[in-house]
């Protein structure tokens, strides 16, 4: 059985919104350590995954490994019935095909319960090689979203060039070209509060060409986190990570494009 109580529905809402256009259905894998998910899009170009650690829930109970097949369109519709501040209780009783979601309003005067029919999905887990990236960029997720949104008006792909001084995003299309350079920074705003900063750690300069359609899809996770981390290695897939407060993360992997 599974019983997991999440303090704010907004977290689950944002996660589902940031995956549902990439993957239509997939298993949520539940174990003692938490709830995780991994699935590729239909064209095998992008992989989405997330982890929500057990300690992000209070309480969290899962006494054996479970794979719960979820259709994201259904889950998204049902989560729209939850208020952002509602507590969500996720429940699954063994040997059933139903997942229950209970939304408790903060004043406790409204409790709604929805049941979702689970699907039987055979999932194929890919093993992702654990390797230290040649370059790791951390930047404002809002800035990253803006760059992807701006450059898709120029072309369908972006070349990301990361060097010690910063990261350059360039795009070329039939009608012209554009580029945006984000310098490495550690700024402090007027209130003395640390503003979102860009950091670049690298062993090698990296250049990757990537589809802007997919990157724009990934930026749907930006509301989850102030920062995005890009792990890049030449001729290897990009890994983007958005932290989900301090309880987990959502990651996307995107295969690069190559010149013929």
């Amino acid at each position: 059985m599974l019983e997991a109580r999440l303090p704010a529905a907004s977290i689950l809402k944002k996660i589902v919104e940031s995956i549902k256009d990439l993957v239509s259905q997939a298993n949520f894998d539940c174990s003692e350590s938490g709830i995780s998910f991994q699935a590729m899009d239909e064209s095998n170009i992008a992989l989405s995954s997330f982890l929500l650690r057990a300690d992000g829930f209070d309480p969290y109970r899962c006494d054996r490994k479970l794979s719960l097949g979820i259709r994201f369109a259904t889950l998204s519709k049902i989560l729209k019935c939850a208020g952002n501040d509602d507590v969500v209780v996720i429940r699954y009783a063994d040997d059933t095909d139903i997942l229950s979601l209970v939304f408790e309003a903060p004043d406790n005067n409204r409790i709604s319960e929805f049941d979702i029919k689970l699907l039987d999905i055979s999932s194929e887990y890919l093993s992702i090689p654990e390797q230290e990236p040649e370059c790791k960029v951390k930047m404002s997720s809002a800035e990253f979203s803006r760059i992807c949104r701006d450059l898709i008006t120029i072309g369908s792909s972006v070349v990301i060039d990361a060097t010690k001084s910063g990261v350059k995003f360039s795009s070329t299309g039939d009608d012209g070209s554009g580029s945006i350079l984000i310098k490495q920074s550690a700024s402090v705003d007027g209130d003395g509060k640390a503003a979102p900063q860009t950091t670049v750690e690298m062993s090698e300069p990296v250049s990757l060409e990537l589809s802007l359609k997919y990157l724009n899809n990934f930026t749907k996770a930006a509301p989850l986190s102030e920062y995005v981390v890009m792990n890049m290695t030449n001729d290897s897939p990009l890994m983007l990570q958005f932290d989900v407060s301090d309880i987990g993360y959502i990651r996307y992997f995107l295969a690069p494009q190559i010149k013929d």
């Binding site: 590729m40 064209s43 095998n44 170009i45 992008a46 992989l47 194929e124 887990y125 890919l126 093993s127 992702i128 090689p129 792909s157 060409e209 589809s211 290897s236 897939p237 992997f253 995107l254 295969a255 690069p256 494009q257 190559i258 010149k259 013929d260």
Partner: peptide
């Protein structure tokens, strides 16, 4: 011309 690679050429099924 650019070719979009598949993730399957990088990540293997166990």
């Amino acid at each position: 011309q650019k070719t979009q690679q598949s993730l399957l050429s990088f990540f293997k099924s166990p």
